[in-house]
Design a binder for these strands. Sequence first.
DNA 1: GATATATTTTGAACGACGTTCACGAATTTT
DNA 2: AAAATTCGTGAACGTCGTTCAAAATATATC
Lengths: 200, 200
Amino acid sequence: MANKRDENREDLKKRLIDAAEARIAASGLRGLKARDVTADAGCALGALYNAFEDLDHLILHVNSRSLARLGAALEASVPQGAGPKEVLLALAQGYVDFALGNYRLWSALFNHRLPEGVEAPEWHRAEHRVLIEQIIRPLGVLRADLDEADLEQRAKTVFAAVHGVVYLALTARFVGTPRAVLPREVAALVEAMMRGLAVS
Amino acid sequence: MANKRDENREDLKKRLIDAAEARIAASGLRGLKARDVTADAGCALGALYNAFEDLDHLILHVNSRSLARLGAALEASVPQGAGPKEVLLALAQGYVDFALGNYRLWSALFNHRLPEGVEAPEWHRAEHRVLIEQIIRPLGVLRADLDEADLEQRAKTVFAAVHGVVYLALTARFVGTPRAVLPREVAALVEAMMRGLAVS
DNA sequence: GATATATTTTGAACGACGTTCACGAATTTT
DNA sequence: AAAATTCGTGAACGTCGTTCAAAATATATC
C-alpha cells in the first residue's frame, strides 16, 4: 500500500489548516506565525514547507474554508419563495451577519495579499464566485434587459458596494459606519440600488 | 537662537516623508523598509526613531499628504454651478481617477493598519473628512428630510459604496470589475443610488 | 569665547520572523 | 532484508523593525 504516506500528508495538512484557522480567528492575519502554527499542529517548523509552498498558501487554504462557510451562510439566509427585492435584502443582511460573526476570518479574506507578481491559483480564484452567485438571479429579475455578461458585472458591482460599506464599517476606523447602524445603512443602500436599478 | 535644532528636526522629517512617499509610490507599503528610507533621506537608521515614533507613524504622515491631495483633486473635479446629481457623479469619477492615477499611495490609505489596539492620532482621523465632505451638500439637496447627523451618515454610506467598487476593482483580483468598465459601473451605481435615494 | 549641559546622530547589536537545508528516520520498492 | 525514495527535524541564515550607548553637535551659562 502506497498510501500511508498520502494519509499522513493529508492529515498534517488538515492539522496545519486547523491550527492556522484558529490562530487567525483568535488574533488575525498578523498574529499568524509559522512557529506557532507548527507547534499547534504538532510538527516541526520545516514541515510546514513540505505541506505547503509557504505561509501564504496555507492562508489561502484557510480562506478557502471561509469562502465555503460564507457561501453556505448566504444560501441559508435566502427566504423561500420570496421576491427578488426580499432576496437581495436578505443576502445583504446575511453578509453583514457573517462579517460580524466571523470578523477575523472574514477580514483575512480581503486583507491577505500575495507577494507582488504572484497570482492566486485558479482553483482559489474560482471559489470567490460564492460572493456573487446568489445575487445574479434576483438581479436578473429586476433587470431582464441585461445579457449574461452585463448581469454578472452588475452583480459584482452590487456586491462590491455592499461590501464597501461593511468593510469600512468594520475595519476602517475613520469614515466607518458605527456597527449599531450598519444593518440600517446596508438596507438603505440595497433598497436605493434596487429602486434605481429597476427603473433604468 | 534656539531653533537651529527645530529647523534641522523639521527638515529631517520632511526628507523622511519625501523618501517614504517615493518608496510607497514606487513599490507599495510592502516595499517600504526603514533602511531604504533612511538611506534615501541621508540619515542614519536610528534617526528615523528620533523623528517619528516608528515606521507606522511615518506612514501616517505620508497618508496625511495623500488625503490632502485627494481632497484637492475631489474639489477640482466638481463642475461649477451644477445640480446635485452632476456633482455626485463628478465626485465619483474624480475618486476613480485619483485611485487610478495614484494607485499605490491611494492603496496605502486603506491598507495600512496600526498594530492591534493602537489608535491613530485624532489629527489624522480628522483628515479623513475630505472623503465625505463634498458629498454632504449635494446629498442634502436630494434628501432635504434628513437631519445633519443622518445626512453625514448617509454620505459615509455613499462614499463607502463607491469606494467598495473601486477598491475591489483595483486590489481584489477575484470579484473585481475590470478597469475598462470601472467608470461605467461606478456611474451606474451612483445613478441608481441617487434615483433610489431621491424617492424615499 | 570657553566651559558645561542638553540634545541628537550614529550604526552596531538584538530579537522576531519566514524560509532553507543537510541529516537522520520512516516508508515504499525491489 | 536491502536499496531507494520520501519525509520530518530543528539549527542556521538573511531580513526586518527597533533599541541603545557612545560620539558629535547644539545650546546655555559664565
